[in-house]
Amino acid sequence: MSHITELAQQARESANPNLLMEGIPYAKLLGMLMEPDGTFHLPPKRTNIGNPTLPALHGGALGGFMEMCGITHVMMAMEVIKVPKVVDFSIDYVRAGLFQDTYAKCEIVRFGRKLVNISVVAWQDDAAKPIARARAQLLID
């Protein structure tokens, strides 16, 4: 069992998903958290700013956050936890991502034997007004 899968296992057993986030340097850099109800949370952090005049989140930071949400969500849903590989990821930006609390939820579209398709939606003030939608295909072996 690898370090990450061990952390994921502990995170799941203790119902404290942030144990996993703390073990992944990139997730720590973004400063992302996971609420017990499965919602992901990206608190405002200066190092995620891309446009200082608005100020707005860097599109890449939002993309990276949503990608990490998808991976984590799939790991938490696995019977035997493994680290999935992202085959492809795409994101539609629909509203400006401002410098404020950002949330995301994931939905597994299909959990196949080899491939998992996942959809991720991110919002700020109002869950009915998403700022971005993403989808990914993940490979598990």
């Binding site: 992944i24 340097p25 990139y26 997730a27 973004l30 860097h58 599109g59 890449g60 930071a61 993309g63 990276g64 956050f65 990608e67 990490m68 992202v86 990821f89 994101i91």
Partner: peptide, 10 residues
């Protein structure tokens, strides 16, 4: 992490 590569390519 792939997310960093996403940010680079974006």
């Amino acid at each position: 992490h792939g997310g960093a590569i996403t940010a680079l390519l974006d």
